[in-house]
């Protein structure tokens, strides 16, 4: 589904991603972990070109999206993204937050989008917040809205950039529950997170990144119980 070849990214002289090649298949739940500054968020943001790679190619469903001629908006419509700081639009109601993109991109009419929004809100148990504004919501509620806002575009893959890092501890659970549900429905997911429990429970594959490289990857059980790389062992000994 997503094929990354020789991806490098540098900010000025600072090399953040160093020649990464990786493949993500449909239905996979890839969890990316690693210390801060390891390049995991940059890696994720390169997948939908919020960061422009310095070198290498990314192919999404047979489209080479790193090609400058590709209409990136069309590609992004199929890739949902959830941010650490939610990034809901504070100037719109929750309903409008959810329906803006599907309607403006011509995916559906306003009435269809409204119906879909109602359905999605029910799913995350926030039906009564449809006419509220983002500032009236708690962090956990905001992030659940951010997830369904991305889902309203009916994406083929969901990218999560540390979705629970900005939340109060007691709100982490409600967001992870929504993500788990999504995973069970078979959504292809790439999740950058510090939630090791989530990685173990939901992930179909765990990538460990440090210094712009993917140092180790494995299916979660094996990864956590039997890490091979010294750096991975060190990291896991600190976080587990």
């Amino acid at each position: 589904m997503i094929d990354v070849k020789n991806l490098s990214k540098s900010f000025g002289d600072h090399l953040v991603l160093d020649d990464i090649s990786e493949h993500i298949s449909p239905g996979e739940k890839v969890v990316v972990i690693g210390p801060s500054g390891s390049g995991k968020s940059t890696f994720l943001r390169c997948l939908n070109l919020l960061e422009t790679p310095s070198a290498g190619t990314i192919t999404f469903e047979k489209t080479v999206i790193t090609d400058p001629k590709v209409k990136i908006d069309k590609v992004r419509q199929q890739m949902g993204m959830v941010f650490q700081h939610f990034n809901l639009f504070p100037n719109m109601t929750i309903r409008k937050n959810i329906t803006l993109a599907p309607v403006r991109t011509g995916l559906m009419k306003q009435e269809e989008a409204d119906a879909l929004a109602a359905q999605l809100l029910q799913r995350v148990d926030l039906t009564d917040k449809a006419d509220a504004y983002p500032n009236q919501l708690s962090g956990g509620q905001k992030q659940r809205i951010a997830i369904v806002r991305a889902l309203a575009m009916k994406p083929k893959v969901m990218l999560f950039d540390e979705p629970t890092s900005a939340l109060d501890p007691e709100m982490v659970g409600e967001v992870l529950d929504v993500m788990k549900e999504l995973a069970q429905e078979g959504m292809t997911m790439v999740v950058v997170t510090h939630e090791m429990g989530f990685a173990r429970e939901v992930g179909s594959r765990v990538l460990f990144m440090d210094g712009g490289h993917i140092l180790e990857q494995n299916e979660p059980k094996e990864f956590f119980s039997n890490p091979q790389n010294d750096r991975t062992k060190l990291f896991l000994s600190k976080v587990l």
């Binding site: 919020l50 908006d73 992004r76 949902g80 809901l88 993109a101 991109t105």
Partner: peptide, 9 residues
């Protein structure tokens, strides 16, 4: 970024 990530131009 959020707007663009949703596919808005």
């Amino acid at each position: 970024e959020a707007g663009r990530s949703l596919g808005l131009n």
